[in-house]
């Protein structure tokens, strides 16, 4: 465990199917990573409504308190968070990569880093070591790959779904933990003056458009065997021949390294 001062920023999430408020998946992973790194000393910060019961799900992960910068809905969380963090002794600020409610543009960590003038690590997977104000961290890449980075403290890091899964939220600590609210200056978010949220429209599946110059080509395309109608089946072949076929497919797909 490192001796870092870590602040995890959390938001109120929404279940993707039912839309009910919950702890946001990625934010919970940020808290989990923070608990790994700082244990009890982790600070957790939220800008929004202190009455929101869903915030208690973070407390249920074993936090004693959660600090809330009190804001009504549709306020801009960025300036208040930036002010708060600039005055704090935080060395590492952890966030999720995208909110589950509202705009969810995923811009917050970027803007926060820009305002604070701190570097930003996207997709933090682990902090390996910290020495002389420099942290060596692992960044998560798609498909489970990892990249090692060196970054100067203090920095902002966002976590995505490659970060460790958040621990279970337990009822007892969630009920006992404290939500401490702090009054802050209100800044309205100009976004909703010009934009609106609508229920998501289902996106049409892209059709395979056949662009053929000649009738023959069109005919060929129209009569071609529809894809997905069962694959090639090799029966009564020697194991070597079967292995060869599989090997060829693996090679074509480029999964053999």
């Amino acid at each position: 465990m490192t001796e870092l001062n870590i602040v995890a920023l959390v938001s109120v999430g929404a279940h993707p199917l039912s839309g009910r408020p919950r702890r946001a998946e990625q934010d919970a992973r940020a808290v989990e990573l923070g608990l790994h790194l700082a244990g009890e000393r982790l600070q957790v910060l939220h800008a929004g409504d202190p009455q929101q019961e869903a915030l208690r799900a973070y407390l249920g992960m074993g936090l004693n308190q959660l600090k809330i910068l009190e804001q009504p809905a549709h306020s801009d969380a960025l300036p208040v968070l930036a002010d708060y963090l600039a005055d704090s002794s935080a060395q590492l600020v952890l966030t999720g990569s995208q909110a589950e409610t509202g705009e969810g543009s995923g811009m917050l960590p970027f803007l926060l880093a820009e305002q604070l003038g701190w570097p930003l690590v996207v997709g933090l997977a682990a902090v390996e070591q910290v020495s002389d104000g420099v942290a060596q961290v692992l960044q998560a890449l798609p498909r489970g790959q990892r990249r090692r980075l060196q970054v100067r403290l203090p920095f902002v890091a966002s976590v995505d779904n490659a970060a460790p899964t958040a621990r279970q939220s337990a009822f007892g600590p969630a009920r006992r933990g404290l939500l401490t609210a702090e009054e802050v200056e209100l800044v309205a978010d100009p976004l909703f003056a010009s934009a609106q949220l609508q229920p998501a429209k289902p996106r049409p599946k892209r059709l395979k458009v056949i662009k053929a110059k000649t009738g023959a080509e069109r005919m060929k395309a129209a009569t071609a065997k529809a894809s997905g109608g069962g694959g090639q089946v090799l029966k009564d072949v020697s194991p070597e021949a079967g292995a060869e076929a599989i090997f060829k497919l693996l090679l074509e797909e480029g999964v053999l390294r």
């Binding site: 039912s18 009910r20 621990r167 279970q168 337990a170 009822f171 600590p173």
Partner: peptide, 28 residues
Amino acid sequence: TLEKGATPNKGAEVLDNLIATDNPGGFA
């Protein structure tokens, strides 16, 4: 479960689903 948050294996997921979707499978 209530104090330690230590329901093993799929337990935590099932409980989260029950809270969020009223069914253990997490279906809409």
